[in-house]
C-alpha cells in the first residue's frame, strides 16, 4: 500500500506516469467512468476547503466510485477529542482510500501509520499539499510542454504557503530550473525548504521584495494568497495581506508567454481584469485538479484500465 504525504514520495518517473494517465483521462473520460465502481473515497477534512474537497469528490465520482466524509472538524469526532490515529483506524473500515486535510502539520503522516488503506495528504497546515502540486505540474506541462529550463517566480506568502514548498521540491528535480522568490521579509521561504531543495542541489535562485523588478524574467508566475488562518496575530495579517497585487500594468512587463498560476482561492492578489488575459491559467489549473486526482486515485488503488 502506498500513501502520498509529500510530493517527494513520488519519483520523477511516477509523476510522469500520473501526468500521462491524466492526459489519457482528459482525452477519453468515458473509458474511466466505471474504473472505481464499488470503491469508496473518504474525504476527512478537519479544516474547511472548497476546491480540494470538491475536486477529490468529483474525481472519485467521475471514476464511478462513491464518497463519504466530513468537511470540518466540528462535524467529526475530533470535536469530541478523538485522535487522528483513532479516526483513520475506524474510517479504514468504511472506505478504500482516504483524502485528509488537517490544520496540524504532520497529521497525515500520523494517519498513514494507523490506516490500513492509502492516505492522501490533502494539505497539512503550512506544510505540504502534494495533490495541488500534481495539479500545478499537469498545468505546467500543458502550458509549457516541459518541466526543464524554466524560470519560476513564486510570489506572496512563501513562509506558510504549503503549495509553494511542495512545488519547489517537485521542480527542483528538473534541469535548468531557476527560482525567483518574491515575498516580504516576514513571509520568506523557510530555511528547511531553501536548504533542502534549492541550496543543496545548487539551483540558481534570487530573492526579491519587488514583483515589478523581476516579472519580466519569468516563464511562470505562481501567485499565492496571504492566508489569514496561518496568523496568530491579526495585526500581522492586515499589514501583509495587500503586499502584492498582480495588475494589468504589471502584466505589461511580463513575457508574452508567461503563465500565471494560483492555487486559489484568491482574495485580491490577482486583479479580476487579468482573468481574460490568455496568460491567466488559474481556472484551467483548478479544472486539471480533478483529472490528476483521478489518476492518483487509480494509481493508489492499483486499478488498471
Amino acid at each position: 500500500m502506498r500513501n502520498l504525504i509529500n510530493i517527494m514520495d513520488l519519483s520523477v518517473e511516477e509523476i510522469e506516469e500520473l501526468i500521462s494517465l491524466a492526459d489519457d483521462i482528459i482525452a477519453d473520460p468515458q473509458k474511466y467512468q466505471d474504473a472505481c465502481r464499488h470503491k469508496i473515497l473518504a474525504t476527512l477534512f478537519f479544516e474547511p476547503s472548497t476546491r480540494t474537497r470538491l475536486s477529490f469528490e468529483s474525481a472519485m465520482l467521475s471514476l464511478g466510485g462513491n464518497v463519504l466524509g466530513f468537511s470540518e472538524a466540528a462535524s467529526s469526532s475530533a470535536s469530541k477529542g478523538e485522535s487522528v490515529a483513532d479516526t483513520v483506524a475506524v474510517v479504514s473500515g468504511y472506505a478504500d482510500i482516504i483524502a485528509m486535510r488537517h490544520p496540524k502539520e504532520g497529521a497525515p503522516l500520523v494517519a498513514s501509520a494507523h490506516a490500513t488503506v492509502p492516505i492522501i495528504n490533502a494539505g497539512d497546515g503550512g506544510h505540504y499539499h502534494p495533490t495541488q502540486t500534481l495539479t500545478d505540474l499537469l498545468t505546467i506541462y500543458h502550458e509549457k510542454g516541459r518541466f526543464s529550463n524554466l524560470t519560476i517566480g513564486l510570489c506572496g506568502d512563501l513562509k506558510f504557503g504549503r503549495t509553494v514548498h511542495s512545488l519547489i521540491g517537485a521542480m527542483s528535480r528538473y534541469a535548468g530550473i531557476r527560482f525567483v522568490l518574491i515575498s516580504p521579509e516576514e513571509l520568506k521561504l523557510p530555511s528547511f525548504v531553501k536548504q533542502e531543495y534549492i541550496k543543496a542541489k545548487g539551483i540558481e535562485y534570487i530573492q526579491s521584495e519587488s514583483l515589478e523588478e523581476v516579472i519580466g524574467d519569468l516563464d511562470l508566475l505562481y501567485m499565492t494568497r496571504v492566508q489569514k488562518e496561518r496568523f496568530f496575530n491579526e495585526e500581522d495579517y492586515l499589514r501583509l495581506k495587500d503586499f502584492y497585487i498582480l495588475t494589468e500594468e504589471k502584466m505589461k512587463l511580463a513575457k508574452k508567454d508567461m503563465c500565471v498560476l494560483h492555487p486559489l482561492p484568491r482574495v485580491n492578489e490577482i486583479s479580476t481584469a487579468i482573468d481574460s488575459d490568455p496568460r491567466a491559467c488559474y481556472f484551467k489549473q483548478a479544472h486539471f485538479g480533478r483529472y490528476i486526482r483521478m489518476a492518483l486515485i487509480l494509481k493508489l488503488l492499483e486499478v488498471q484500465v
Binding site: 485522535s83 490515529a85 496540524k104 502539520e105 504532520g106 500520523v110 497539512d124 497546515g125 496568530f232
Partner: peptide
C-alpha cells in the same frame, strides 16, 4: 515546539 505541529495536540504521540 512548533504550535502548528500535530504533536502539539495529540498528546500520546
Amino acid at each position: 515546539k512548533n504550535p502548528r505541529c500535530i504533536t502539539s495536540t495529540e498528546q500520546d504521540l
